[in-house]
Amino acid sequence: MANSKELIKTTDLLLEIASILMVSGANTIRINSNIDRFVEVLNYKASCFISHKSIVMTVYTENDLESCTRVKNIPPYAINFSIISAISKLSWEASNENWSLNEIAQAINSIKKSKRYPRIIILLAVSIAGAGFCNIFKGDYINMLIAFISTFTGLFILQTAHQKHFNLYFRIFLASFIASFIASLGVVYDIGANPVAALVTSILFLVPGVPLINSFTDLLDSNIINGLVRFTTGLMIVLAIAMGLFLTLLIFQLN
């Protein structure tokens, strides 16, 4: 009986790790390899099915006499590369030093508590990135300022809508519409050398780079379902961005 309790605890911990990795934006290959490393330390074997909203995992003993299958729902997605890196490092340490179940659980808990950068730093950094984009697309420094302001406002709206638990695609539409609206004022009043550059770059901070890149990585490794799911998510986000831009262009009748 004690043995089966431990098995359930192990399964829960592994599911927790897999779901944290999934939420943080790891691809399926990485999740599987991390789980394999942890499961080897704990002297079990594991097989799992990972999809976008839930994970099914069976953990079993070498001789196949005992097994435990559980399902876990995945919380909302928030890309966090620090967590991916920390869990990857943890898995290597654990397998090198032969950690016990409790030690791994404690380490995972402390990783889960790690904080993100403060909101204002994220806002400023992404806005500077938007200004940088504008320079890449041949804008001058006045255009870069417009791109900075519109990215800042757009991201602010996106974060606020996120806190109010709006639908993902609706809040991306909203952010895209507002950011492009502000930037297109520059086009209407013809501010700077290349105002279109500011309009183009004002919405680039919304681009779903991580889902799209992960989708191809998954597809190339024959995780077809997960690859398609991620691709569809990325496509829906692109569609929402295009809708926001579309509305702005229609309002200002730009051509």
Partner: peptide
């Protein structure tokens, strides 16, 4: 100049994705 700005853009997105400070 353009390459420097793409460096800044990369860093900005890195912070959005919460990369560790040492990276």
């Amino acid at each position: 100049e353009v390459a420097t700005w793409s460096g800044f853009a990369a860093l900005g997105f890195g912070i959005l994705f919460n990369i560790p400070r040492s990276a």
